[in-house]
Design a protein around this nucleic acid. Structure first.
Lengths: 104, 104
DNA sequence: GATGAATATATCAGATATGATATCAATGGT
DNA sequence: ACCATTGATATCATATCTGATATATTCATC
């Protein structure tokens, strides 16, 4: 993974730390982050087609800022919330599975 | 969903509350729980083929009791941990995606 | 049926993710 | 230009998830 990509992750709060720490990321840890980012991107696409961030937040009993973070790949957002959000937009397990399967 | 199934969930700590509260579970909430349970079952299968709970716990920098809970569908275990555990057993995003896609 | 390894259950203090709130920027309609 | 709507950013108290620890149970194998 290139420096530019690392910088981008750090900007979003991904605790990749120093470069040397970053290099210690196991393949599993890298894959995990990639799964979250893939869900994040897909959520944004899907949500934009049908509702505002506020509307989705209300459905989820969450808040608009949290949805913004989820869609921007912020590290403080868990896969839990990403998947719950996807389901709230009407995504099926099939779709969610496909997004994850495409990673790697 | 039948009474017997509800009882089973409650035993594992799923906060489905009273029967009436349970009936208020949205389809999305139900699907979410089913995804977690599917991952849980698959994790157990997969882990048993190659290592002990302790070995997996060490790989994850987690603990054996936490793996036991993960494999038994305990409500205190997040999808985060389930997916990290799957990856630690060597599962690919493809496999994880398939398990989720099969739900519903 | 005793011994040891694997797994299950209970508890808990600390870490992390959460929703709420306030605020700002960007966009667009009037 | 003004105002309303949408999305982004910052902070924070609380709730939830975490690994650790202690202990109990199951289950082989002898």
């Amino acid at each position: 993974m290139e420096e530019a990509k690392r910088k981008k992750l750090e900007d979003k709060g991904w605790n990749v730390g120093t470069v040397s720490e970053f290099l210690d990321l196991t393949p599993e840890e890298t894959t995990f982050i990639e799964i979250k980012l893939a869900l994040s991107r897909y959520l944004k696409e899907r949500r934009q087609k049908s509702m505002t961030q506020r509307k989705l937040a209300d459905k989820l009993h969450s808040s608009q800022p949290r949805i913004a973070k989820a869609e921007n790949g912020d590290a403080s957002v868990s896969i839990e919330l990403l998947i719950r959000a996807m389901l709230a937009t009407g995504a099926t397990p099939q779709e969610i599975g496909q997004v994850i399967a495409k990673v790697g």
